[in-house]
Design a binder for these strands. Structure first.
Lengths: 131, 131
DNA sequence: ACACATTTATGACAGTTGTAGTACTACAAC
DNA sequence: GTTGTAGTACTACAACTGTCATAAATGTGT
């Protein structure tokens, strides 16, 4: 497959939250990211700037210069990062059993009816593909 | 619900692997844990001992003394830790959509037919419960 | 008693993460 | 041109993680 799991081997919470912002828009300046995060948690501007620079060094984001400011974009996809976390959860915690993992998700998350319908459809499709 | 997410806020890889061992048996001495891990990765005995002691300080494991050696057991359940990882994955990466998260799991994991059947059953049960 | 093995306790160190203060740079307005 | 202002770069630091080496304690065998 790829070495995605090695690149974002261990992502901290703030880094994940920053990525989350960057996944929701095509690009964002430091001020933009800071503003978005600020709404949930007070953070110094420089904290965000520092994290973004460190994350760029690790290849998680990239920037272009617009005037005197940097405009960042994510260079990893949510699905890649999700794969890491999902793999970790399924393999390490649930001994490789996807069923157990999903079962747990269902039990601990209070899912709405439409979600269940969507999931059912999803699985039927997967079955069709596997047949 | 509870504050489980605060206790094992950020678990490192080795800690997770140690817990995995401790989840697979009722209890295990340091040597046992070390032996199990040794098979996949060369590790100094003291590394494991140190980690276990640190983990006990954080309430992740506990020990009793048997003669001169410590016998550890996990004090958190796999499902608790799975909840953290699952929550993190679903909320932060997949914007709260369990469907997207599971969909991703299905696509990236090459699931066997029986797993799909089990999942389908799981969802039907969840539906019945919600009705 | 003495050497050897087993096991826990401490101390150390490098790398990462969150956090932010300080410093430097460049433009904007007067 | 001096003064804000906004932005990046650098430095620092505490907490945590993985990693051990070394020390200290407590057996075991002969």
């Amino acid at each position: 497959m790829n070495d995605s799991s090695s690149t974002h081997h261990r992502l901290g919470d703030l880094q994940l939250r920053i990525l989350k912002v960057l996944w929701s828009v095509p690009e964002a300046s430091v001020a933009d990211v800071h503003g978005r995060l600020q709404s949930t948690q007070p953070l110094a501007y420089t904290t965000v700037a520092t994290l973004l620079r460190r994350m760029e060094a690790r290849g998680l984001v990239a920037h272009r210069e617009q005037g005197r400011s940097f405009v960042y974009r994510a260079t990893v996809e949510a699905s890649e990062v999700g794969a890491s976390l999902g793999h970790r959860m399924v393999e390490q915690v649930f001994e490789g059993s996807l069923t157990d993992a999903v079962s747990h998700l269902l039990r601990t998350r209070d899912v709405r009816r439409e979600e269940l319908d969507a999931l059912e459809k999803l699985i039927r499709e997967a079955k069709r593909r596997t047949r």
